[in-house]
Design a protein around this nucleic acid. Structure first.
Length: 542
RNA sequence: GCUCACGUAGCUCAGUUGGAUAGAGCGUUACCCUCCGAAGGUAAAGGUCAAAAGUUCAAAUCUUUUCGUGAGCGCCA
């Protein structure tokens, strides 16, 4: 149960009782920063002041009378310019402990998603190199978002789009072939826009080790295929080690083979949205708000990147999703308007596609910016990241940041300061609780969920924080901002550490001890569930 | 020049349906282990919320302008 939502309901009913018309969704209930301002507070009276031509305090007075009647409410104040501060009844609050413990790993789950089918496409890095730091951010985001949405009751598909056709793959094939020629003792002619990563040489070596010089006369298709397979394999392994798994891998080649391109072009042509100019074929994206029309077929007869992408989105829409999410790097932001325009041109609702842009990650080494480029190959790969600071620590780090705002990642600092990582702070809270629970078990002290003797302000504050989890999950899902989970779990850990310092859990009083155990068990469950959503395992001991 | 982000403590960042005295961590300083894990807690110091104007009971938050930082502006993807 979402307590904040419950308070909204109570206020809504009170308004009804006073015959005041007000949209329920517009009622604002918040958790005050200061505990003395109530467990929950609302500015509803101030919002209504203008509407009712009355002063907020007198509106609040009437509302308070109506709200008071609910048995869950202990006390209600009017403060300052007209805030309504609500305090919940202790008995009511503490009776929820049982529920949290019974639900255990399902605690925090919500139904707001209503099984809505949603497709999240992320990473989708071209198989022309190894995944680096920048893609790690997108990988973490997409994976966390999928977890949160699933927990909130959505039907989620995680999808990776493989650009395994087109120009870049040609370049890849050529690069590998040239490296191979080099290894075979021939003159190497690496193209200027080729790929210079170490892994390209590895692939060439791989071919040479298996086939010697037999493949020197083989056509480019062979090199392309070997390279793509080889790199995809690494990409899958690296993602898996980073805790990121996909449900669907869609290949551009397959999309082309299915005739999706011809199908898209036909639809656009029938709508008269295509025209020829300067020997090229243009799509009238300006009709749908783009700055200028975009080329679909170049004057040399080949497709631009936009064509297979339109075909791909057509394919996704036809698979029956209620909503599509694309996660792109900020360097593709100008692409959003033409993609949306294209979707509208196809006759689909462009608002069903939500594009999330993630700002760039800058890599620092000892305070200096390292230029990251897949072509040059000077970068930190995901696997190096996992090796150096650990999967959980890395995942936690990316999860703390919202998508907007670029981030600097100093690898030297990340390694050195690993003990100061907030992940350890949260993990430590969990480990501490586990340790206490273990100690209790050895002394045959059971958990008692029937709490009645520890209804002090600190216990209540801690428990209310636990209850906030479900609201955080819902907000995080609606806003598609998984970092809210990280913020929350940090706050929860902070409250717990504070509580631990002030209140001894296990004492000579066995009854009191077992009640406190019930309380901290809810904290442990919540931390564990929250961390699971961001792909991090909660440590039982450290 | 145009488009999109961002600018909050020395550093890294929360504060995003406008709300009460703007908050954490790191770093600095002083305390707290006879006792469930001190990878912790308590406290101090640190702010013109980039700047200005506007909207209103109320602005870090919304609007406009200016400055700064980053990304993009292709018949590349």
């Amino acid at each position: 149960m979402n307590l904040k939502q419950k308070i909204k309901d109570i206020i809504f009913l009170a308004l009804k009782e006073l015959s005041i018309e007000f949209d329920k969704e517009r009622i604002v209930v918040e958790i005050p920063k200061k505990r003395e301002n109530g467990d929950f507070s609302s500015n509803i009276a101030m919002q209504l002041a203008k509407l009712l031509h009355d002063n907020p305090v007198s509106i609040a007075k009437n509302l308070v009378e109506a709200i008071k009647k609910n048995k869950e409410i202990e006390k209600i104040d009017i403060a300052g310019p007209g805030f309504i501060n609500i305090y919940l009844n202790d008995k009511y609050v503490f009776s929820g402990i049982k529920n949290v413990i019974n639900k255990n790993e399902d605690y925090g789950k919500s139904e707001i998603g209503n099984k809505k089918k949603i497709d999240i496409e992320f990473v989708s890095a071209n198989p022309t190199g190894i995944l680096h730091l920048g893609t790690a951010r997108g990988a973490a985001y997409g994976s966390n978002l999928a977890n949160v949405l699933t927990f909130a009751g959505y039907d989620v598909t995680k999808e990776y789009y493989i650009n395994d056709a087109g120009n870049q793959i040609n370049n890849l094939g050529i690069s590998v072939k040239e490296r191979y020629k080099g290894l075979c003792g021939l003159q190497e002619n690496m193209p200027e826009d080729g790929y210079y990563g170490k892994e390209i040489i590895d692939i060439a070596k791989f071919i040479k080790d298996n086939h010697g010089k037999d493949k020197l006369e083989t056509n480019l298709e062979y090199f392309k295929k070997v390279a793509v397979d080889y790199l995809l394999n690494i990409i899958k392994t690296d993602l898996s080690n980073f805790g990121v798994e996909f449900d669907v891998w869609t290949s551009e080649k397959d999309i082309r083979a299915k005739g999706r391109i011809e199908q898209s072009l036909k639809i656009l042509d029938e709508k008269d949205l295509i025209y020829k100019k300067d020997n090229a074929v243009f799509l009238k994206t300006t009709v749908y708000g783009d700055d200028k029309d975009r080329v679909l077929i170049k004057s040399d007869g080949s497709y631009t990147y936009l064509v297979p992408d339109i075909a791909y989105h057509l394919d996704k829409f036809d698979r029956g999703f209620d909503e599509l999410v694309d996660v792109f790097g900020a360097d593709h932001h100008s692409y959003v308007s033409r993609l949306k325009a294209s979707i509208e041109a196809l006759g689909y609702d462009k608002d069903k596609l939500e594009v999330r842009l993630l700002q760039m990650v800058r890599l620092l080494k000892g305070g200096n910016i390292v230029k990251m480029s897949k072509r040059i190959g000077d970068n930190i790969t995901i696997s190096e990241l996992v090796d150096e600071i650990g999967k959980d620590s890395a995942r936690y780090f990316f999860a703390t940041r919202s998508l907007d705002g670029q981030m600097d990642f100093d690898i030297n600092l990340a390694v050195k300061k690993s003990n100061d990582n907030p992940f350890f702070y949260v993990g430590y809270a969990h480990a501490r609780i586990c340790s206490i629970l273990k100690e209790a078990m050895q002394n045959n002290i059971d958990i008692n969920t029937n709490v009645k003797d520890i209804m002090d302000a600190d216990s209540k504050a801690l428990l209310l924080k636990v209850y906030e989890f479900i609201d955080v999950v819902e907000t995080s899902a609606i806003k598609k901002e998984p970092y809210l989970i990280t913020n929350y779990v940090y706050d929860l850990a902070c409250l717990f550490h504070n509580y631990y310092g002030k209140h001894r859990i296990l004492t000579d009083d066995r009854s009191l001890s077992s009640q406190r155990l019930g309380l901290i068990k809810t904290v442990q469950i919540t931390i564990k569930n929250a961390l699971r959503l961001i792909g991090v395992a909660a440590p039982d001991k450290m």
